[in-house]
Nucleic acid binder design. Structure first.
Lengths: 127, 127
DNA sequence: TATGCTACTCTCTTTTAGTAACCATTGACC
DNA sequence: GGTCAATGGTTACTAAAAGAGAGTAGCATA
């Protein structure tokens, strides 16, 4: 099966699930954070502000399952666990960073558009 | 405020919300679909397989609010509504397509990684 | 009179995310 | 001996979001 045959627009294609995953809210941030190098669980939790332990664990497990990050446990007390992007995960960095950069570059325009939209819609309340 | 000052890793930064939005499951597919040109609501609903009317409406409203798509209503019976990417929305196409392409290119590897992961985890059931 | 078309909108149910408390392990401290 | 802290989780409960399905407007055609 070549690349051309995967179609995320088809809800039954496995690529749909994968696209859902990589386009996930926390995945983008976790992969972005790991771009800087290996990180401990607690470092990630701090860097990705607002993520709960549960969601961070879940996101990391999914990334691990998809072969995008490795999980290395050091048998110490207290325990230490490091997460690192695999080669495959590193390639994901680029599209994710592109998304992050696009967001930063278009923030002003978006905020302005929102302001205007909300202004106009406020003029048309429901009868 | 320059681009450098937006930080989506901070949960209170507005760029976080915007990144959440553009990294949204349906947004990626809707923008990808609209890349082919203007489309009617029903065409989008068909192309983006599995999206509910509710979610499609919501996604389009959000994109419209952010100034990424325009909504043109033709006063006919039955009604006709066309959605089209704005210039700003067109720039979003690139990072989204990058994500879509990455997904397609890495599908095989990911499926293989999942298979192996599930195999190993099955060997370690909870006591 | 009945039916169909389109682009929604509303209500209800199910799934998912978020919150907060708890766990195991060991050393330091009182 | 009991308590606390640190780390990387898990579990139970609740709030929010998504999905399913029916309903709506307004006119045209059968």
């Amino acid at each position: 099966m070549t690349v051309l045959e995967w179609d995320p627009y088809d809800r039954n294609c496995p690529s749909r699930q994968v696209l859902d995953r990589v386009g996930d809210r926390w995945t983008v941030l976790v992969v972005g954070a790991l771009a800087a190098g290996p990180m401990r669980f607690s470092e990630l939790a701090e860097r990705v502000d607002g993520v709960s332990q549960k969601m961070l664990t879940q996101t990391l497990r999914n990334l691990e399952r998809d072969g995008l990050v490795t999980r290395t446990m050091y048998a110490q007390i207290p325990p230490r666990v490091e997460y690192e992007l695999t080669d495959s995960g590193t390639t994901l960095q680029l599209p994710m960073k592109a998304l992050e950069d696009w967001t930063k570059e278009h923030m002003r325009g978006i905020m302005a558009a929102r302001y205007e939209y909300d202004l106009h819609k406020a003029e048309l309340p429901k009868p």
